[in-house]
Amino acid sequence: MIEVKDDWCKGCNICIDRCPVDALEESDNLNRRGVRPPKLKEENECNYCRLCELICPDLAITVIPEEDDKKPVKKTLLTPVGGKLK
């Protein structure tokens, strides 16, 4: 599960862009700043890698892993490699 503090989000969409399994999308409601904060897709492959939590510049995202829910782990691009894409 992913919790987003809506009013902290500035809408940079880095989490959506960087997610290794494309599990995030923009939500429908606007927050106080007038941007659409991210949310999990209805059908997603989120494996709780916590990249979005660590990379959020406004510390708005919290990832809460679900213990009984085991999904195949897809490794994110964790090392800088000089332009080779994921």
Binding site: D7, W8, K10, G11, C12, I14, L54, I55, C56, P57, D58, L59
Partner: peptide
Amino acid sequence: WPTIFCNGCGHGV
């Protein structure tokens, strides 16, 4: 909070 940083700034990270 929230910070004064612009959208997409790396300082918060």
